[in-house]
Computed example of a mutant assay.
Amino acid sequence: MPSIAGPFLALSFFLATVSAAIPSLSGYNVVWSDDFNGAQGVGVDSSKWVQKVGPTGANGELEVYTSGTGNVHLSGDGQLYIIPTLSGGTWHSGRLESNAAWFAPTGGAMILQSELWVPDFAGSPAKFGGLWPAFWTKGNNYRSSGVPWPRCGEWDIFEVTDKLGNQNQGTLHFEDASGANNGAFNKRVTYATGQYHTWAFKVDLRNSDWTKQALTWYLDGVEFYKVTGAMIGTFEQWVQLAWNDYYIILNVAVGGDYPGYPTSQTVSGYDSSMRVRYVAVYKTV
């Protein structure tokens, strides 16, 4: 896989930090971030996140998202925990959506980045069957003006399931000319499970030719997938995907048509949680 060239080499979280946990990137400013520092057991910063409540009705999923700190809370040592739990025959979990939304500046670039940990899905163990942790986005016009999915656009930066094992699948979703969902632009990358990894997504509009603009996925600072305007092929769809503002979502879904349903072996609680050290949004200086 090709390495990231130029200033983006600064992606590594071993470099100097803007704050306790937010890495700096040469040539970029941090425009929004959360390092999840706070007392053990407290909730997230409501000025940055809205905690969704209830079933989503999407994909045939089973989980009911809850308010409060039962399924979403800080660890006390700079981590966020999103914890799926089974109680009384019902799966509960957590879903956070950023209050803000961001777009890449004209003639510039934007990066969305997070360092997170998920259970060890290698070998598709039955104890994690039906779990679906994710770091992803939706076009903000979905919630601001009621533009339906998939017309609003979606960037799946990180999503894993027991069906994928130790592979993450980066995916775009958008509406094609016929009005159907196009999810054909996707690629998987293998990662070392049971460890924290940095996942990033870059929207690069620095080329004035829209066909040469790009959306790029990274694992620990290494590019693993890129989609250009030329690959999408239609200006209207590229505008939808690359020129609009998007908001961040962190959640752990449970069950559904995909990835399948949990079983009696699926583990409830902390062992099945997704843990996040930070989320940050960067724009070119």
Rank of each mutant, 00 (worst) to 15 (best):
T263S: 15
L131V: 04
A58R: 13
S114E: 14
V281P: 01
T161E: 02
V279E: 01
R95N: 08
L62S: 10
I22P: 00
L131A: 01
V72D: 01
K202P: 02
L164A: 09
G70R: 13
I157N: 05
R206A: 03
W238Y: 07
D257P: 01
N251K: 12
F185P: 01
F158A: 09
Q237K: 12
P148I: 05
L164K: 11
P2L: 13
N166W: 07
I111W: 00
T216M: 07
Y81S: 10
K202A: 14
P150Y: 05
G179P: 09
G129T: 14
Q79P: 08
K283G: 05
N182S: 04
D271W: 13
P125A: 11
S208C: 06
G70P: 06
L25I: 15
T90C: 01
A230D: 10
S273K: 08
L215M: 15
D245G: 11
Y261I: 02
V118C: 09
L241H: 03
D77Q: 12
V72G: 01
K187T: 03
G108S: 04
D204L: 07
S145H: 09
L205W: 00
W243D: 14
G130T: 05
E154C: 07
L164D: 11
V44M: 08
G256K: 03
K163N: 11
G68S: 07
R275G: 02
T234A: 13
M110H: 10
Y246H: 15
W217M: 03
S268W: 02
T66L: 11
V267H: 02
V64L: 07
A280C: 03
Y81A: 07
S93K: 02
V252A: 02
W102V: 02
A134P: 08
C152T: 14
P2Q: 13
W243V: 09
F185E: 01
P133H: 07
N29W: 09
G70F: 06
F103I: 14
G70H: 12
W238S: 00
S124R: 06
T228R: 09
G41S: 08
N166E: 15
L219I: 06
H92G: 07
L62N: 06
K187G: 00
E115M: 14
T17G: 11
Q195V: 08
G43M: 04
L205M: 05
R95G: 03
S98P: 12
G94P: 02
S124N: 08
W210P: 01
L116S: 01
S178C: 10
S12P: 08
Y191K: 07
L62H: 06
K163Q: 15
Q213L: 05
S46V: 11
Y218A: 11
L219M: 13
T190V: 14
P119F: 11
V203Y: 02
N182V: 00
I83H: 00
M231D: 12
E159D: 12
P55Y: 02
S3R: 10
S272N: 12
E236V: 14
D257C: 04
W49V: 02
D245T: 15
Y258C: 05
T198S: 14
A109Q: 04
G179I: 09
S33G: 05
